[in-house]
Simulated assay, not measured.
Amino acid sequence: LGDEIEVEVTPANFGRIASQNAKQALMQHIRRAEKELIYSEFKDRTGDIVSGTVRRFERSDVTVDLGKFEALLPNRERVPTEEYQIGERIRCYVKAVEQSPHGPEIILSRADPQFVVKLFQLEVSEISDGTIEIIGIAREPGFRTKLAVWSRDEKVDPVGACVGLRGQRVKNVVRELNNEKVDIIKWDPHVRSFITNALAPAKLKTFEVDEARRRVKILVSEDQLSLAIGKRGQNARLTSKLTGWQVDIEPEHLTTMGFEEKVAQAIKAVASIPGITPEQADVLVHRGFLSLEDLLQAEASDLAEIPEIGEQAAAIIDAGRAEAARRHPKIGETSVA
């Protein structure tokens, strides 16, 4: 009594087809249970970074083996400049756990800006403990990222903490991003300072701020224009995303003075010397005496050879010397206004 006895039984109408159907139904139940396990385990891991192995490609989507489960890195979440090999280990950001027609699916990303935020949280202890806060991020995956940081503690430099000793912290992040350029910017509540920090090292000339339209027009010198805008407009575009303001950068057009204007300016300068009339100044400038310094280097005989000046040469030389003495008095003398 109590022994187990195995007896082979062949139920009626239970042939090969029926047994295959039973097997398929059983496998479906097992797969459904596995997928429910995926959902229950990963639904709270959204926002984490996981490591896995590239298993296969389905068109441009990548299937990643996470150990017990498989996840999907869709083409839209891939970095355009990155290529993966089967068997390669990669780190990804868990963007979502979605319920698809085929059951729960783990969606990974390497292009999401939050991937960079999470990497900095893991690398910089001051961010994870709340001393430094990441205020904003703008990213063009594979090319450039701008990160705005702020410190709750005045003694802690937010940019320096993120860069790390000899740049080690930011180098670790850049290495994970396959040498994507990362700009770490100090956040500022004042839009002018914030945009200036975001566009550094470009030197900005003037700002025109339109508060109502949240638009900023910036003038820069022509030699700073390409630096401020960046390659294919990338620097200006990321600055707009980061700050939330439309940033328009234009070159400063310097008005070039023409020859006639220069001549008129020189005549006016010479005519301002007491004792020299505008008519005399006009003649002197057209004969090459463009300033007070030119007159001081001339002799009365030089001016006397000019028909329109003639006998007035000595008086003009004296007027020039008197003006020079007034502008540059000797030590101990007082300038006469």
Rank of each mutant, 00 (worst) to 15 (best):
Leu242Lys: 06
Thr239Glu: 00
Val216Glu: 13
Ile195Trp: 12
Arg192Asn: 13
Gly230Thr: 02
Val270Tyr: 03
Glu252Pro: 04
Thr239Ala: 12
Leu227His: 03
Ile185Phe: 09
Phe259Cys: 00
Glu208Leu: 10
Ala202Phe: 10
Gln168Ala: 09
Arg237Pro: 01
Val220Ser: 05
Ala269Phe: 01
Asn179Ser: 13
Thr243Pro: 11
Val263Gln: 05
Gly160Cys: 04
Gly160Lys: 11
Ile249Ala: 02
Ala198Arg: 02
Thr206Arg: 14
Thr196Ala: 15
Ser193Ala: 15
Arg192Ala: 14
Glu176Ala: 02
Gly233Gln: 09
Gln224His: 07
Arg175His: 03
Cys162Ser: 13
Lys241Gly: 10
Pro251His: 13
Val173Tyr: 11
Asp248His: 10
Arg232Ser: 14
Leu227Met: 09
Cys162Tyr: 14
Arg232Gln: 14
Arg215Tyr: 02
Glu222Arg: 06
Lys217Ile: 02
Thr255Cys: 04
Ile195Arg: 07
Phe207Ala: 07
Ile229Leu: 06
Ala212Gln: 14
Lys186Gln: 14
Leu238Tyr: 06
Asp210Glu: 07
Glu261Cys: 01
Val216Thr: 08
Ala271Val: 01
Val247Tyr: 10
Thr239Tyr: 02
Glu208Tyr: 03
Ser221Leu: 08
Pro251Tyr: 05
Val270Glu: 09
Gln265Tyr: 13
Leu238Glu: 12
Gly244His: 12
Val216Asp: 08
Phe259His: 08
Ile218Ser: 01
Arg215His: 14
Lys186Leu: 11
Ala271Ser: 09
Leu254Ile: 13
Val173Trp: 06
Ile218Phe: 03
Lys203Ile: 15
Asp248Gly: 06
Gly167Cys: 00
Lys241Thr: 06
Glu260Thr: 03
Arg237Ile: 06
Arg166Phe: 12
Ile267Arg: 11
Thr206Cys: 12
Lys262Cys: 09
Pro201Gln: 03
Ile229Tyr: 05
Thr239Asn: 05
Ala212Lys: 15
Lys171Asn: 15
Gln168Val: 08
Leu225Gly: 06
Val209Leu: 15
Gly258Ile: 00
Gln234Thr: 07
Leu177Val: 04
Arg175Gln: 07
Thr196Val: 08
Ser193Gln: 15
Thr256Trp: 07
Lys181Tyr: 07
Ile229Ala: 01
Val170Arg: 08
Ala228Gln: 08
Phe259Tyr: 14
Asp223Met: 00
Pro201Ala: 00
Lys262Met: 13
Arg213Trp: 11
Ala264Phe: 03
Ile249Pro: 05
Val159Leu: 06
Ala266Asn: 11
Lys203Met: 08
Leu242Asp: 02
Lys186Cys: 08
Gly167Ser: 03
Trp245Tyr: 15
Ala266Gln: 14
Ile267Pro: 02
Leu225Cys: 04
Leu242Gly: 13
Arg166Tyr: 13
Phe259Thr: 02
Leu254Glu: 11
Glu211Ile: 00
Arg215Ser: 09
Ile184Ala: 11
Leu204Trp: 11
Thr255Trp: 05
Arg169Trp: 01
Asn179Gly: 00
Arg237Phe: 06
Ile184Thr: 10
